[in-house]
């Protein structure tokens, strides 16, 4: 390019400058909007605490699993079998396939007489869902509505004018919801002031919450349908 005239050189250089400018413009316009962290120290600290608690819970779970695996690996066939059976029993209990007894509370749904006469006793599925969400949020361990145990894939739906839970219709009120909790006293206190009471009252239903020591929850009666589940082979973040 030594024989290039000065004018030509300048021309090429200008073209290159324009291209450079456009490229920078292009990358500038692709910058994502910066998300600013606006949490203060207190929020970060409480977030950290939550994460630490989660870590502890996961660690405890992991320890149990490691113990079970150790039992399985380091023992005779007989013991291996019993370890497996224990694991299966444990999983069944966690999945809600066994009858469970424990300290807890019971909530009775009653029809309320209002000025408008006797309401027809219809409950909305959403009401029940909200109530169950609240119970779960306040530390419920296991829940049963009437004779239906709440398990992981329980669906609560409105079919016609009835509520179906686990594909079976729920009884009309009065209806009892039984809840097992680690700390029934606390759950009771929470439920006494929960918004659910008002929401049910709006629909002509009253909640009577008792902490009657021991409650017995029925087992989940159907088979788990796991045909569509599959194991994820890849490692998630933090698995290594």
């Amino acid at each position: 390019m030594n024989d290039m005239s000065k004018a030509n050189k300048l021309l090429f250089s200008l073209a290159i400058a324009i291209i450079g400018f456009m490229i920078v413009l292009y990358f500038n316009s692709h910058d994502d909007i910066e998300v600013r962290d606006t949490r203060d120290a207190w929020e970060i600290r409480s977030q950290l605490q939550i994460e630490q608690q989660r870590q502890q819970a996961l660690q405890a779970e992991l320890n149990v699993l490691i113990e079970a695996r150790f039992d399985y690996v380091s023992s005779s066939e007989q013991q291996q079998l019993s370890t497996l059976v224990n694991s299966v029993d444990h999983l069944k209990e966690e999945a809600g396939m066994t009858v469970r007894r424990g300290a807890g509370i019971s909530i009775e749904l009653l029809l309320e007489r209002s000025e408008a006469g006797i309401p027809d006793g219809r409950i909305m599925a959403e009401l029940i869902q909200r109530l169950l969400n609240e119970l779960n949020a306040y530390g419920a361990e296991a829940i049963a509505v009437g004779n239906e145990r709440l398990v992981t894939h329980t669906a609560i739906r409105e079919v016609g004018d009835q509520i179906y839970m686990n594909q079976r219709p729920l009884a009309k009120p009065p209806l009892t919801i039984k809840v097992i909790a680690n700390d029934p006293e606390r759950l009771l206190n929470y439920m006494e002031v929960s918004p659910s009471k008002n929401e049910f009252a709006l629909h002509g239903l009253s909640l009577i919450i008792d902490s009657d020591g021991e409650v017995e929850l029925p087992a989940f009666q159907d088979q788990y349908k796991l045909d569509l589940l599959s194991v994820i082979e890849e490692n998630g973040a933090g698995d290594e």
């Binding site: 200008l14 290159i16 400058a17 450079g20 400018f21 413009l25 500038n28």
Partner: peptide
């Protein structure tokens, strides 16, 4: 030099479309 000028111009004006 002109490439640098172009790049610098882009970064300094901080234009985005």
């Amino acid at each position: 030099l002109f490439l640098l000028i172009g790049l610098a111009l882009g970064f300094l004006t901080n234009l985005s479309i």
